[in-house]
Every structure is written in structure tokens, then in C-alpha cells.
């Protein structure tokens, strides 16, 4: 005999119980769950098995939910997890992050998209470092899924006539992002990944390019001058405009820059930063 609890009510109730952090009892008695279905009605609607009560049966889904969330976040944010420690990381993800930013995506790969924002809005120890580190880790995760682009080779560079360079625009590959940090995040993350002792957290202006080459993601530290020039190029300024801006920004290093430009440019081309050269 069919009772008349609508499908949408059952699902809203069950989801509210699954997503509620804390114990099974707290989840079943939460305000949201009670709003959807009073405890007695919900309890009567979930059949017990020979071995498990209704609360225990729904509890299986609750445990799986929080495990999936914490495991998925740990894959994307190993550095943040290392700073916070496993217990605190899992607690923050399960009790706070997932509640504030539940998954709306078809894939768990998108779950961590708002973690840097969450860290910025949350009271945490080492918050400024965690914010920087989470931005680096998010960039790396996003990079792995970015579209693959063709890359410019040295021969193409060589075929550009000297007078064409002034107005040349270098189009970056899709899987390239420039980031600035106030902490030694690269050094820290490398240590976590390599499973060696992590360095002391310290304030350190750090300029990074995250990019992918032959389907592998890299994150390289750049000097402030390199970062400035590459940022200008990546933002589709012409080659001459970019260099002019660099010289203007670092007037005291003009001679040194002239010597290094060729070397940097060669390195960036061979690292596959650019997908094509647009000539006017």
C-alpha cells in the first residue's frame, strides 16, 4: 500500500540527513531534516533490516558521503592537509566547507573550486599561508584538465622576420596560469609531494607560472622581472609593448635585462608556454 510521502520530500529529507555533519542522531534531528519530515514519520518510512536499524542504514550513506568529500579534497589539496593535519583538515571539510559549498557538479573534481575563498573567509591558523597554498593547488588541479593546445616551436620563432617582432603577439597555451604569492608555497608543496621534511612557513614574495607540457603539469618559480614580462606577453600585449613596459618598470636593470631577454624567451618557448605567434 503506497503512502503519500512525495518523492521530493523523501529525497530532500534524505539529502539533509546525509549532508548534516555530526552523529546520526544529530542528523536525523536537525532542523532541516525535521522541516522535511518529522523524525517519527521518517523513521517509519525507512525499513529496518534484520541487522540494522533505519538510523544505521541511512548512516552507511552518511559515512560514505563524508569520506568521499574528505578524500576528494585531500587529493586536490595535499599541501593544505599537511599544514592543518589530517584530523583538522577532515573536520573543516566535513563540518564547514561542504556545508558552505556543497557540490553542484556532476564530478567531484570540481568540489574544491571554492576552497581558497573558504580559507580566506574562515578563521584559521596560518590562514595567509593556507590561502596562498590553496590557490597554487587549485591552479595545479585546474591545469590538469585544461584544454590541450598546439605549441610554437623554435623553427616558427626563427621564421619571424626581425621587423615583424615589434607587433608580434604571443598567444599562451590554455594550460598556463600566472600566480603571485606572499609565501614559500612552491617549496612547501614540493616537499609534501616528495614526502620529505617540509620547510618552515615563511613570508616570501613568490612568482609562479603553472603550465602543462606533454600532458604533465609543472609549476616554476620566476624572478619578478620574468614574471612581469611573461604576464605582459600572456595578456596579449605585443612583444615591443611588453619589453617597453618591462624596461619602464625596472629602469635600473636595463642592461642586465637586454642580456637575459633572449635566454628567457628561448626557455619559455622550449617549455611550451606559447601556442602561436600572431603577426600583424
Amino acid at each position: 500500500m503506497e503512502n503519500n510521502i512525495p518523492l521530493t520530500t523523501i529525497q530532500r529529507w534524505m539529502q539533509s540527513v546525509i549532508e548534516h555533519p555530526g552523529t546520526n542522531d544529530e542528523a536525523w534531528n536537525s532542523e532541516q531534516a525535521q522541516k522535511e519530515l518529522p523524525f517519527d514519520e521518517a523513521y517509519a518510512n525507512v525499513l529496518p533490516s534484520k541487522t540494522l536499524t533505519p538510523v544505521e542504514r541511512i548512516g552507511i550513506y552518511r559515512k560514505m558521503f563524508f569520506l568521499r568529500m574528505t578524500e576528494s579534497m585531500a587529493i586536490d589539496y595535499p599541501g593544505v592537509k599537511n599544514v592543518l593535519g589530517e584530523f583538522e583538515f577532515d573536520r573543516i571539510v566535513a563540518e564547514e566547507y561542504v556545508k558552505k559549498f556543497p557540490s553542484h557538479s556532476y564530478t567531484l573534481n570540481h568540489l574544491g573550486r571554492y576552497f581558497p575563498q573558504f580559507i580566506q573567509e574562515t578563521d584559521l591558523r596560518n590562514k595567509a599561508f593556507l590561502y596562498d597554498l590553496s590557490r597554487l593547488e587549485l591552479s595545479i588541479t585546474n591545469n590538469m584538465d585544461a584544454e590541450e593546445s598546439p605549441i610554437v616551436h623554435q623553427q616558427e620563432i626563427a621564421s619571424v622576420q626581425p621587423d615583424q617582432w615589434e607587433h608580434a603577439i604571443l598567444i599562451p597555451i590554455a594550460a598556463l596560469e600566472m600566480l603571485e604569492f606572499d609565501h614559500n608555497v612552491c617549496e612547501y608543496l614540493d616537499a609534501v609531494i616528495e614526502e620529505v621534511t617540509v620547510p618552515e612557513i615563511k613570508n616570501e614574495r613568490t612568482f609562479v607560472v603553472v603550465y602543462r607540457k606533454t600532458y604533465r603539469t609543472y609549476w616554476d618559480i620566476l624572478s619578478s622581472q620574468q614574471y612581469f614580462l611573461l604576464s605582459a606577453l600572456v595578456s596579449r600585449k605585443t612583444f615591443s609593448e611588453s619589453i617597453a613596459l618591462l624596461v619602464e618598470q625596472f629602469p635600473d636593470s636595463q642592461e642586465e635585462l637586454q642580456q637575459k631577454l633572449f635566454e628567457w624567451f628561448n626557455e619559455w618557448v622550449s617549455s611550451g608556454y606559447f601556442s602561436k605567434i600572431k603577426l600583424r
Binding site: E2, I5, L7, T8, I10, Q11, R12, M14, Q15, I18, E19, Y61, M64, F65, R68, S72, P102, S103, H104, S105, Y106, L108
Partner: peptide, 16 residues
């Protein structure tokens, strides 16, 4: 999931 949430599990439906 419901209300555009995804809990990333294969949840049972009431057979009604």
C-alpha cells in the same frame, strides 16, 4: 542529489 546538489552516491529511490 536534489535541489541541484550532488552527494556523489547512488542513492535508493522509493519504488512508487
Amino acid at each position: 542529489g536534489v535541489n541541484a546538489h550532488n552527494v556523489h552516491d547512488l542513492l535508493p529511490i522509493p519504488y512508487t
